[in-house]
Design a protein around this nucleic acid. Structure first.
Length: 432
RNA sequence: GGAGUGAUGGCCGAGUUGGUCGAAGGCGCUCGCCUGCUAAGCGAGUAUACGCUUUAAAGGCGUAUCGAGGGUUCGAAUCCCUCUCACUCCGCCA
């Protein structure tokens, strides 16, 4: 959510941000509507507050009269009329307020000035490539073929038991998944200063609004029918909302959490894209890094969280590249974002495996997360950031493809071997 | 799922025959005094949001907030309804 006062003071600045994002006309109209409603709201607010001030004063009078035994019926009669006026104005005010809030919750964040201009994802900016993609002496297989042949993933039975875009990990596949979770968490907690968090997988509506997943993206998440609960699309939601409606102290900052959870995505509108394999499924595990920081540090912290995510890929010796997301591809709640893309040799392309984002105070306003610089200072909103560190399923896919051998077996990255009981290779059952 | 109790400011805790309650008192904290040091003592202060004033900042005026939302009333922390959460007992259960 944006600061209403800022929008009112600098509408042109915001209009420009919308243009940079290539927002549709609809969004522009919504913003202009906001400005109109805001004026009406302030007018109505003043009117009703004047009346309420009068009512409060007269009520004191009435109390005075009652005590001294004087007749207050004239005052009471007058206030009955005022009371009705107040009620009418308040109803009006409430509808204006509802409309304004609804618009504010749907207006996208302000793009940071450093974000490269671009129309859509085709204009994202590659920054650097790290690690040399391996040259294969054979045709590298896609991870879904490798995984199925090795008997470590099972999509068919998952489709039977649940539906499409779900997966069973079996045997060493399940163990690899577990090893990666532990490895990633150990690195972040012991080397990079994060506190481990295991959050609830269901959250209420207020939490979804708090991180900016609602009201705009209702279609992307799973909702529990009987309750006001949603399946989390990422640990970002519960972990960020951990401090909703709280005031942190300056010494606490930055607060660094490494949350791990399953993430549930409806993937509405993605039919036909990445239909095979582990890239786009409805449920996957992820280690999510979340930071609460002082505003003036947030862009330094963005570089830091990026480095924290990169270190995982480096230790796993997976080739990847860093790209900066351009204005036109930036998400609704984002000010600035980097993506890390891992090399998938079968497709011969890089695929997103982590996103690192600065939201500035966008989420903090929605969730009312503040801090005090000193004990007496007035509370200010924190900045929140997050980064995937990493999506585990996609990491499994990357390991299978990059570490595959000509005989269909897959060697295990050396940092992972201690987590796999010393195992160095996953081979097909008949070759073990 | 059933029965009951409760939710007040940073914390504890008064206030339930509706009116002088943004809210007693205590603790904590801040500033000042006092003190050889520490402790104690004395005095003052100590919520947040929004609107207006247009303010560089401060200040001033007003409104709202006693778990959340709605209602009754001239007037609600106090009365009524709904919801949320916590605790106790019963049932069920990994």
């Amino acid at each position: 959510m944006l600061d209403a006062r800022l929008l009112r003071q600098s509408p042109d600045m915001y209009r420009e941000s919308l243009v940079r994002r290539s927002e549709p006309q609809e969004t522009h109209d919504m913003f202009e509507r906001f400005l109109v409603v805001d004026v009406a709201w302030r007018e109505a607010t003043q009117q009703t507050e004047v009346l309420k001030a009068r009512r409060n004063a007269v009520s004191q009078q009435v109390a005075q009269y009652k005590r001294t035994g004087e007749d207050a019926s004239l005052l009471i009669e007058e206030m009955r009329v005022v009371g009705e006026q107040i009620k009418e104005l308040d109803d009006h005010l409430r509808s204006l307020d509802d409309e304004m809030t609804d618009i504010l919750l749907r207006l996208p964040n302000i793009v940071h000035e450093s974000v490269p201009q671009g129309r859509d994802e085709s204009e994202n900016v590659p920054i650097r490539e790290i690690g040399e993609p391996r040259t294969f002496s054979f045709e590298p297989k896609p991870h879904w073929d490798l995984g199925v042949d090795l008997g470590i993933v099972d999509f068919e039975r998952a489709a039977k038991v649940t539906g499409s875009r779900f997966v069973f990990y079996m045997g060493l596949g399940a163990r690899l998944e577990r090893a990666l979770m532990n490895f990633m968490l150990d690195v972040q907690t012991t080397e990079r200063g994060y506190t481990e968090v295991w959050p609830p997988y269901l959250v209420n509506q207020a939490s979804m609004v708090g991180t900016g997943n609602l009201p705009k993206f209702e279609d992307d998440v799973f909702k529990i029918r009987e309750f006001d609960y949603y399946l989390i699309p990422t640990a970002e939601v519960p972990v960020t909302n951990l401090h909703r409606d709280e005031i942190l102290s300056a010494e606490q900052l930055p607060v660094n959490y490494a949350g791990y959870s399953a993430a549930f995505r409806s993937e509405a509108g993605a039919s036909g894209r990445d239909t095979r394999g582990l890239i786009r499924v409805h449920q996957f595990n992820k280690v999510e890094l979340v930071k609460f920081v002082a505003p003036e540090t947030s862009y330094d912290e963005l570089e830091r969280i990026l480095a924290d995510a990169e270190v995982i890929l480096q230790k796993l010796e997976l080739p990847y590249r860093l790209i900066e997301i351009c204005t036109g591809d930036l998400g609704f709640k984002e000010c600035k974002k980097y993506d890390l893309e891992v090399w998938l040799p079968a497709a011969g392309m890089y695929r997103e495996i982590s996103s690192c984002t600065n939201f500035e105070d966008f989420q903090a306003r929605r969730s009312n997360i503040r801090f005090r610089r000193t004990e007496k200072a007035r509370p200010e909103f924190v900045h929140t950031l997050n980064g995937s560190g990493l999506a585990v399923g996609r990491t499994v896919a990357a390991i299978l493809e990059n570490y595959q051998e000509a005989d269909g077996s897959v060697s295990i990255p050396s940092v992972l071997q201690p987590y796999m009981g010393g195992l160095t290779r996953i081979a097909a059952p008949d070759k073990r």
